[in-house]
Nucleic acid binder design. Structure first.
Lengths: 125, 125
DNA sequence: TCGGACCATCGCGTCGATGTGATGGAACTG
DNA sequence: CAGTTCCATCACATCGACGCGATGGTCCGA
């Protein structure tokens, strides 16, 4: 697929697909005429990037953790350094912190919404 | 407490505390000399704001959902509009989506890390 | 062969969240 | 009184994610 065909199912502007490539998040093949060439796996990859970007981590971090997300799992032996282990631990913990923060607040929002909604129904509906 | 005393325990630059106030996220009292005055509840409030900002929602949204997070729960009757109910539902769902995305990816990172770590120990430790 | 649809690169603009520094006032302290 | 430290406001800079337009190339069908 070409960039337009990847843009459509992912709801991602072409501009951003090129940006993600510039940031090293995705690597596209090139056709003879210079056009970027993608296969279907890029759809999920791009959606994953967008989801993560919306949930906190910047591209710099996402680039580091993307290799962890391949299925089937491919181990990059260069990752077996103490630095990389530390990075993975740090980012894992940051993500956990975000999850907990979001969960707390989402539950509060949901609870509040329920109360307001019930008041509406019983008060002057 | 004054702005410096709120800045320290929250790890938040004074600049940002003023910024959050400008965005309507917090409202400080003013002393006779013009200094902002906070009480202890602002510590948690600021930490909550920072956590949310780091996890996706922009200040505009955070401002809307902050009133939902007060304990004990205070219902703002102006919130009983269909628009507000819709907003709360939308943001709740967005937060849920972020939680799911982060959880999936965090688990992948954690799993990858474990494998790399074990390889290290058994390979050439 | 020409017009349109796609692609390329490049550069500038925007927007939200921050950093940084200039300038000045109030309060404490030597 | 001078110096230090806190505070105030205000303006400008930065940075990452993204929007948008200019310009030009390839390919395809009328």
């Amino acid at each position: 697929m070409r960039i337009g065909e990847l843009s459509e199912p992912t709801g991602t502007p072409r501009r951003l697909l090129r940006y993600y490539e510039e940031q090293g998040l995705i690597v596209a093949q090139r056709a003879a005429n210079g056009c970027r060439e993608y296969d279907e796996r890029f759809v999920d990859r791009v959606l994953q990037i967008r989801g993560l970007l919306d949930a906190g981590p910047p591209t710099r971090i996402i680039k580091q953790i993307l290799p962890c997300l391949d299925k089937p799992r491919v181990i990059h032996f260069a990752d077996a350094t103490p630095e990389m282990l530390g990075t993975l631990e740090l980012e894992r913990d940051r993500m956990t912190a975000r999850i907990e923060c979001l969960t707390r607040n989402r539950d509060a929002v949901a609870g509040y919404r329920e109360v307001v909604r019930n008041n509406r129904r019983t008060e002057d509906g």
